[in-house]
Amino acid sequence: MEFDVILGNAARAGLGPQAAIFALAAIGLNLHFGYAGLLNFGQVGFMMLGAYGTAITVATWGGSLWLGIPLGLGLCVAFALALGVPTLRLRSDYFAITTIAAAEIMRLLIRSSPATELTGGPFGLQTIANSFYDLNFLPDGRFGWGTFTYSSNQLWVMLVAWILVCLCSALVLGLIRSPWGRVVRAIREDEDAVRSLGKNTVAYKLQALAIGGVIAGLAGVIDALQQSGVGSENFEPQVTFFVWAALIMGGLATTVGPVVGAMLFWFLREGVESFIREFSGLGWLPDGLAGFLDGAEGAISIALMGIGLIALMALWPQGVFGRRRDLHLGT
């Protein structure tokens, strides 16, 4: 068993564009739930709108990428308003159910055959990111060493993605430390108390939902650029759960929590999968087991993640960077 290979793969995944995409989505979700207390289970819907808004503009309408990205992010704001206006008055469990439903409605519509002309239906849309890679000022060739070798374009995506992660973290930090953020955190604690003090809580929640949604939309944009395409199978409800898992691992209502959580999530996921691949390649395993493990590493790692989430909640519910003290003060 080659542990350096496993570790290398895991670290590569933890630093890769997927981790940055998850970090962005988790930063948005952290604003939603960690700070504003909004139980959003439709985060993948925002990612999908960001990605598809961009891709449709470029691939279907032949427009510019630089028009498509703001359009995709604008769709995220529209989705936040459409979702929030009717449901933010309701109890948080209703909000959770509505958001997961709304995101899935959109995905089913996007992948349906009547929508094929616009969205590519089940086939998605391709070659959308040329103008993004044209901006790549890094020299051609391959960089790095060993497992950590990247092409110029891969490096370019990672560079942009991680810069966005830093910018969005700073944005959320600045907002949360402002009087606006104080009201938002107050709403998380007790909405009625804040309403009784003259604050329009629904407006604050809508704003938080929209900002967090746009950050998730950026995650979707990066995903589309990274793959130079979009496909509806990348936006299944499961993705929202994974983003939740990353956020919870890192710790709610902290600045670094979502970023570290996302890196940890991909590190562990790829680490486990890599381990299983190495393990199933060992010659001495019984045939049944080796055959079973072959190709099963994805499902096994997610199943283990399920166990991990249960154990985390039972033993260490505040996450890696959360404060245990806060947990007992919460509702």
Binding site: L171, G174, L175, S178, P179, W180, G181, R182, V183, R185, A186, R188, E189, D190, D192, A193, V194, S196, L197, G198, K199, Q207, A253, D326, L329, G330, T331
Partner: peptide, 28 residues
Amino acid sequence: KSLSRLTVLENMAVGAQTQRGERLERAL
């Protein structure tokens, strides 16, 4: 209804009606 995970001082500040930094466009 105390705002548990805010400090006492922050609780008080939420009561103020004069802080225009509570508007999103001024927050930063």
